[in-house]
Design a protein around this nucleic acid. Sequence first.
DNA 1: CTTATTTCTTCACTTAAGTGAACGAGTTAT
DNA 2: ATAACTCGTTCACTTAAGTGAAGAAATAAG
Lengths: 192, 192
Amino acid sequence: MQNLLFNFISKYISITEEEKNVLVSLNLFHSVKKGTILLKEGQHSKESYFVLNGCIRTYYILDGEEKTTAFYTEMDALTPPCVISQTPSECYISCVEDSIILVSNEDMSEEVNSKFPKFDIMCRKFSEELLAKQQINFDEFKTSSPEQRYLNLLKNRPDLIQRVPQHQLASFLGIKPQSLSRLRARMLKKES
Amino acid sequence: MQNLLFNFISKYISITEEEKNVLVSLNLFHSVKKGTILLKEGQHSKESYFVLNGCIRTYYILDGEEKTTAFYTEMDALTPPCVISQTPSECYISCVEDSIILVSNEDMSEEVNSKFPKFDIMCRKFSEELLAKQQINFDEFKTSSPEQRYLNLLKNRPDLIQRVPQHQLASFLGIKPQSLSRLRARMLKKES
DNA sequence: CTTATTTCTTCACTTAAGTGAACGAGTTAT
DNA sequence: ATAACTCGTTCACTTAAGTGAAGAAATAAG
């Protein structure tokens, strides 16, 4: 499992055995059960997450309704908005599946960064990449209809459709579960 | 006009006269007329923009239709997706109003960063802030109806509604110009 | 194994957005 | 000054999403 992490890191920087040991000694690895809630509305948090295995999701509760905004799967990283803005969280984070994740807090990353300046470089590259991905995602969402979004999902992250309950997918696509059901039925008809 | 920039920078780091002079000597300031297109689909670019004054927008042309995804006004920064991903641009950038903007390219920022490591720190803080803002924007967009989005806009960026043509606003809100017209008419009725 | 609970689909109905066309007001160009 | 555009609004009509309710199927809990 740790190798997954080291492989990922070596995409950005080279890493020595010594550095690997430091990382391991930090006890970053956590195994979390499906349904576990990692962050609740109102909480203060300095934790970032990195998914090695499994799936976690961010959502809001507005007017008593869950609104899912994102899913994070293998090799996805997530720093909740509240951690950056240093305000009480407005969103929830929970595990969609049994997952193995890295949990790091700010103090830890400062420690690592001071010992290994290379990590700073990696984080920077990584967050630039994230920013670009997010930009593109946002643009794609804005410029698409729910149906197009579903087709995009089918193309880009087909696994999600299998792994995630429909009603969570629906709100991720910006519609109600009933509408997603209809949409799928409509598409099946068209095919034939 | 330059003071606008320096004031902005001092929100993040302290800056000496010497450093100011280096910045000025770089000839970053550009005055651009309304309607000027800064970036076209298919172009390669390494340029980032910072708006001192005025308004620029990013949009895509899909099926012959303009889809506006963002407006950038005073003290907003923009690094187009294509610059980060180093691929031909898929989006356009144009001036909504006569504007004064900073244009910087990657080589330049590397030069500045090597001379003044402080700038690196500033860029990092700034991009973290941007990432958080974007995250929040995206979540807000996803969890809102067109009407709520319009109300949000009215609350958070009321100037845009005055400054920007309705049909560009409409696609920014994810709907057609006719729908925005109706939506506004509907809201006026409700008020009375 | 049986009872709950969650999840997904379907239905009838309401509401809002998409579409294509038309019109006037304001701009720009010639 | 006139013609050509752009822009915003309105209208009638179509299509799709929201809503509330109901029921089947799958999962989880006892």
